[in-house]
């Protein structure tokens, strides 16, 4: 019998998944990214905005994101973008999320649970 892995990223990986997905489209700085999360999820997901920075820095440290400083209107912004390692991580997390989503969907749609 194979031992199936549990789903640690089930909820804790959600900010990470969102961040990687949005930054894979285009590079952004923190404030821009938080706004994008709000818009893309139609405000369904509202994170404490400060919480996004530990996620960004963690991903940068493990090589999933790269950061560069850019001066915009007299202020220095830190722009983040996804690296090839980050893209791999994103694919893995997205696959995991898809599996979870399908599992929940099948429970919700099962006639026995109606």
């Amino acid at each position: 019998m194979t031992i199936r892995q549990t789903n640690p990223p089930f909820m804790s990986g959600v900010p990470e998944l969102l961040v990687l997905r949005l930054l894979a489209r285009q590079e952004m700085y923190g404030y821009e990214l938080v706004k994008a999360v709000r818009v893309v999820t139609s405000e369904a997901i509202r994170l404490g905005e400060g919480v996004i920075y530990p996620v960004l820095h963690g991903l940068e440290r493990n090589g999933s994101l790269s950061a560069r400083r850019k001066a915009v209107n007299g202020r220095t912004r830190v722009y983040y973008s996804v690296t090839p390692t980050g893209q791999q991580r994103l694919d893995r997390l997205a696959g995991e999320w898809e599996r979870i989503k399908n599992g929940i969907q099948s429970v919700l749609e099962s006639p026995q649970n109606a």
Binding site: G48, E49, G50, V51, Y53, P54, V55, H57, N62
Partner: peptide
């Protein structure tokens, strides 16, 4: 209010092993 409390941010940071 939008940024969240210091404690909330500190908890989120402590959860990132890389930091």
């Amino acid at each position: 209010r939008a940024i969240g409390s210091d404690e909330q941010i500190a908890r989120a940071a402590a959860a990132q092993v890389e930091l």
